[in-house]
Simulated scan of single mutants.
Amino acid sequence: MKLQFSIFTKLLIIQYLSILCVSQDFDFFYFVQQWPGSYCDTKQSCCYPKSGKPAADFGIHGLWPEYKDGSYPSNCDPDGVFEKSQISDLISDLRQNWPTLSCPSNDGTKFWTHEWVKHGTCAESELDQREYFEAALKLKEKANLLQALKNAGIKPDDGFYELESIIAAIKEATGFTPGIECNVDPEHNSQLYQIYMCVDTSASEFIQCPKQPRKKCASTVQFPRF
Rank of each mutant, 00 (worst) to 15 (best):
D69I: 06
F29T: 08
A56I: 09
Y48D: 10
P73K: 08
Y30I: 03
G59F: 00
Q34E: 06
Y39G: 01
Y48H: 13
P49V: 03
F58M: 13
A56M: 11
V32E: 02
G37P: 04
K68Y: 12
W35Y: 03
P73Y: 10
G52K: 04
S51M: 13
Y67D: 09
Y72Q: 11
S51G: 08
G59W: 00
G70R: 03
W35K: 01
F31W: 06
W64D: 02
S45R: 06
A56V: 12
F29Q: 08
T42H: 15
P36W: 00
H61V: 15
L63V: 14
K53L: 10
K43V: 04
W64A: 07
S71C: 05
E66S: 13
L63W: 07
S71D: 11
I60C: 00
S51Y: 09
Q33K: 07
Y48E: 14
K53R: 10
D41L: 15
A55T: 14
F58D: 06
D41F: 14
C46E: 05
E66A: 09
D69M: 14
D57Q: 15
C46S: 07
S45V: 07
G62Q: 04
Y48R: 03
P54S: 01
G37F: 00
W35G: 04
C46P: 09
G52W: 03
F58C: 04
P54H: 02
Y30F: 12
L63R: 12
D57W: 12
Q44F: 12
P49F: 02
Q44C: 10
P36D: 00
D41N: 09
S45N: 05
G70V: 00
Q34D: 05
S45G: 05
T42Y: 15
P73Q: 13
A56Y: 01
S45E: 12
Q34M: 11
F28I: 01
Q33D: 14
K43D: 09
P73D: 08
T42S: 08
D57I: 03
C40V: 05
K50H: 05
G37Y: 04
F31C: 08
D41P: 10
G62N: 09
F29N: 06
P65K: 04
Y72T: 10
P65Q: 07
S71A: 15
Q33F: 03
G59E: 01
G52Y: 02
F29R: 09
K50G: 14
A55C: 07
Q44M: 13
G52C: 14
L63P: 10
P36F: 02
D41G: 12
W35C: 02
P54Q: 09
D57P: 11
P54E: 01
Q44H: 13
Y39P: 02
F29D: 02
Y67R: 10
P49A: 06
